[in-house]
Write a protein that binds this DNA or RNA. Sequence first.
RNA 1: GCGCCGAUAGUGUAGUGGUUAUCACUAGGCGUUGCCAACGCCUAAACCCGGGUUCGAAUCCCGGUCGGCGCACCA
Length: 576
Amino acid sequence: MVVMTDIYENVMELAKRRGFIWPAAECYGSVAGFVDYGPLGAMMKRKIENIWRDFYVVREGYYEIECPTIGIEPIFVASGHVKGFSDIMCQCPHCGEYLRADHVVAAAGGKWPGGGSHDAIAEVLRHVPCTSCGTKLGPVAVFDFNLMFQTSIGPGSQRKGYLRPETAQGMFTDFGRLLRFYRDKLPFGAVQIGKAFRNEISPRQGMIRLREFTQAEAEIFVHPGEKNHPSFARYRGYRVPLLSCLHQQQGQEPELIPMGDAVRAGIIASEYVAYYIALTHDILVTIGVDPAKIRFRQHMMDERAHYAADCWDAEFHSPRFGWVEVVGIADRTDYDLKAHAAHSGLSFTAYIPYETPLVVQRRRIIPNMGRLGPRFRNRAKKVAEAIEHGIPGDQGMEITLENELIHVPPELYEVKDETVEVRGEEVVPHVIEPSYGIDRMIYAVLEHSYTEEEVEGELRRVLRFPPWVAPVQVAVFPLMPRDGLDEFAHTLVDSLAAENMVAEYDDNGAIGRRYRRQDEVGTPYAITIDYETKDDGTVTIRERDSMAQVRVPIEKVPEILRSLIRGTLTFSQLNV
RNA sequence: GCGCCGAUAGUGUAGUGGUUAUCACUAGGCGUUGCCAACGCCUAAACCCGGGUUCGAAUCCCGGUCGGCGCACCA
C-alpha cells in the first residue's frame, strides 16, 4: 500500500481531472461554495439519489413531491428561519473583523438586549472591546446577516422571496393536501430531493460546506402517541454504532447496539427514530460508505433544537475533516405543523377515529340572547361568553367581567345536560425527519472508495465503487483495433446499451492502460474481445477489484453483467 | 470576513525584470504490440484576473478571485 499523503487532495484532484466535480463557472474564476457535477459526477449523483428513492419511495411507500426552490416570506417566518437563521452582526471599526454581536457582548460579560433595536444593541456594543483585536469598539454599525438568500418576486419587489434553506418546509406546507392524498390516515410520509441554499459566511472544505446543495428529506407524520414503527421487525436486530449522549459524556467509543435493544434501553427515544437510524446506515453502506467509518451521534441536550424529542446525526470519518455530519434524524414533534397552523390560521391536524366511540356526558350552558341583549347592551356578547364557561347554581351564577362581579340570574340562560358520542379526535401529528446531504454522501463515497496500490512498480488508483453506484458500468475493449475485433466490441456495446447499461468503448493504447483508465473512474467490469472471440465466441470479463478474468460466451454478457451490477450474482460465482 | 501562505499546459512541476517559458505524466494521431499505465515518431496544451511601476512585467507593487492553514462563522 502506498502511503496516501493527503487523501482529500488526491481524491479531489482525480474527481476534477476525470469529470466528477468541478469548481462552478471556472472560466470566470469560480465562487466559493458552488460546484458543478461533471459527466461522471452527475451520473453518480443520479444513481445515489435513485438508491435513496428505492429505500424511501419504493420500499417505505413515501411518495416524492417537488416544491419550488423559492419560497415566500410567510413560510420562513413560520418555520423560524427568518429569525433563527439570522445573526445580528457588527464590524469592528479598528480591525475590520465581522463579529457576532451577541458573542461580543457575552464575552465582555455584558447583558444582551435581546429583541432590542439595532440602536439599542449598538449602544451596548460601543462600551465593550472587540473580541478580535481587543480595542474598545466605540460607535459601530449593527446589521442583520441572514443565511437565507433573499430575492423579490415579480416587478417592483412587491413580494419578498427566499431561496429555501431546506426542502422540508414543502412537505409541511403541503400537509393538508398530503393528508387527503393518503386518505386521512396516519402514519404517512412524503419525501423530496432537491436543491437548498444557504449563504454561508465562509464556506470551505470543498464539497462539505456548499452554498447550494442537494438535500434528500423525508417527513414522516405519525400519531403522537404511537411511535412504534409498523415494520420495526426488519431492523430490530440490526446493529449500528451508536454514540449516545451518555457515551459522549463519559468519553466512550461508539457501541454496536441492535436497534431493538437501543429502544428498550431508552437510548433511542422511539422505534421510529431507531428505524430510520438503521435504514440510514443501510443506505450509507449500500452506496459505498465504509461501515467501519460510520457512527451515529446523538445530539446533546444543549445542541438539540428545543422542540426536538430526539436527534441523531449520521457521521462519516475523513482523515482530513474528522467526523462529518451527513444525515440528521430528528423527532421534531409537532413543532412545524403547529407553527404553520398558527401563522396560516388553518388547521394542521388529522382526525383520528376511536375504535369504539366514547359516550360523554356533557353539560352545555346556552345564554338567552333575547334577554341578555336589552340588559347588557354592548357588553352582551362578552357576558354570553362568560356564561358559557360559568358554573350555574340554583340562584344563577357569578361571572367576572373586566374586574366587575356580575350576578346572572337563572332566567338568562338554559342548562342542557346531554349525552354525546365522541367518535375521534383531532391530533397534530409528530414529524420524524431524516434529512440527507447528498453532496456530502457523494464525497464520503468518493473518499472511502479511493485506494492507491502498487502493481508491478506502478501506482494504481482505483475507485472501488459498488457496481450499482459506478457511473460507467462496463468498458469494452477490442484487444487490437482491427481484424474485426473492433466490430465485435461495437456490437457488444450496442447490446449492453439496449439493456440500459452505460458501456464505454475504448481501443486506444495498450490494454493495461485501458484497464487503468477505467479503474480510476470506478468502472467495475471490463470486457475484452480477443482472437479467441473469433474462434469460439467467448470474451473475458475482468473484475476491477481483483483484476481477475473469466471467459464467458459473448451472447451471455448482457445478462451476466446485469446480474453482477444488481448484486444478484458475484464475480467468483462465474468461475464455476 | 480577518491574518499568514500560495496560484505556471488536463495533472504534477522547473525557472527568470529582457530571444522561442523547463521537464515528466496525461491526452490526440500514426506505427508497433496477442490481456494489466510497454515502445518509436508526430501533435496539442500553461504563466489566475484587473490596475500600477518600467523602455520592457508571467516575474516587482496594489487590489480582486480562488485554494490551503489559523481565528471567527457553520439552522
